[in-house]
Write a protein that binds this DNA or RNA. Structure first.
Lengths: 206, 206
DNA sequence: CCAAAAGTGTTGGCTCTACACCCATGA
DNA sequence: TCATGGGTGTAGAGCCAACACTTTTGG
């Protein structure tokens, strides 16, 4: 399950299934683990195959094993969540799928199998991890303004955030590094920030 | 992976493997999912087979799929954690295992496969869940004194707890119901408590 | 000079922590 | 009456939430 921010919205990448009874339905990309392969490696390989992405934050979520979840056979799926900073980096679906595209997580189309359940699970995890880790680093570009950072939080947590209190807390926490440069635009220039660490660290946050 | 409190210590139930190259090593009980079986059902069935337990809190933890974790074959294991209030309720190991017993989690014997990793993972999860849910209900009998409740927390969190502050917070939270009865002993009788809910609920706690 | 987004402080209430003594009972 | 564990209150500090105006720039 791949997520990214696009047009200031939280979006998920879905593929359209090409054949079989689920033909035409949308779903998260996935595939089979190979014999002798690590689960994480299999997840990375499938992600690369369906989107072209080679580097991204990847995390095991949950394992779904209801025998009726796939009408074909008893399939056990180990769900992974991947996060990327730029939805545009996705190459497009592999030949395996009829189409691929980004959908707002609050308005996903009907999904095949039990993927709606998976999506709910993933989004819940993302939300809670945002509150006690620096996981946002995986969803933002290397360098960003504080406003972008703040909006990410308000979008994922689905609640308004007090700018002043939020800024104070985050900066006191040392989560971000302030850069010397600013971003110039049609209005007052904004200071640029980067994450102090580009790897996951747990923190007491909100 | 089964955990319980015994003699005021946090303990895990281990079985001794009977045959094969891992003969004599201790491990968590486990087994194969049957075709057409739900994962949770399989976990319950294996728990029942190795301990006789039919009811207990059960939660999926994580899926371990390193192909080298089992020298025999590429086995993917979906780890579950079970919690019970009374270590004495375990019937003893099934014929499948040579022996079974309870071990303090801080002093486990060397474990087969990657089970030490699993144990660390489970204990970490238990610790953190204790802080933001009422999961303790699964580790305590129906009725208990506040001292027992408090000791559970200090044992699992591995830190001392201020009795007065802790009591105030927990009671204010409405997590417990105070019963009319008291437990009489060689000293001042202790008020008895029960959980307000006997099912998992998430709460902002500590 | 206007529009738009960036940036900044203070106060009151509340919560948390630190801390030590009295109580009830059985032996 | 003594030993043992059960039960309770308060004050000071720190934290958090609420709240609106000024600054900087480009057009």
């Amino acid at each position: 399950m791949l997520f990214a921010i696009q047009d200031r919205r939280v979006k998920a990448y879905l593929v359209q299934l090409g054949k079989g009874p689920t033909r035409g339905r949308w779903a998260f990309p996935g595939g089979l683990v190979r014999r002798g392969e690590m689960l994480d490696d299999a997840a990375r390989r499938e992600l690369q195959a369906s989107t072209g992405l080679t580097d991204s934050y990847l995390e095991q979520l949950f394992t779904f094993g209801d025998p009726s979840r796939d009408p074909h056979a008893h399939v056990v799926s180990v769900a992974y969540m991947a996060l990327i900073p730029d939805a545009g980096a996705v190459a497009g679906p592999s030949r395996k799928y009829a189409a691929g595209g980004w959908f707002e997580v609050s308005a996903l189309p009907p999904l095949a199998y039990d993927h709606a359940l998976m999506a709910a699970y993933a989004f819940k995890r993302l939300k809670s991890k945002l509150e006690y880790s620096n996981i946002a680093f995986a969803l933002l570009p290397r360098v960003f303004t504080f406003a972008e950072f703040e909006e990410l939080y308000s979008r994922i947590l689905v609640r308004p955030i007090d700018r002043r209190n939020f800024r104070r807390r985050i900066l006191a926490m040392g989560l971000l590094r302030r850069l010397k440069e600013t971003r110039r635009g049609p209005h007052r220039p904004a200071a640029l920030y980067a994450f102090a660490r580009q790897s996951l660290q747990m923190i007491e946050m909100l």
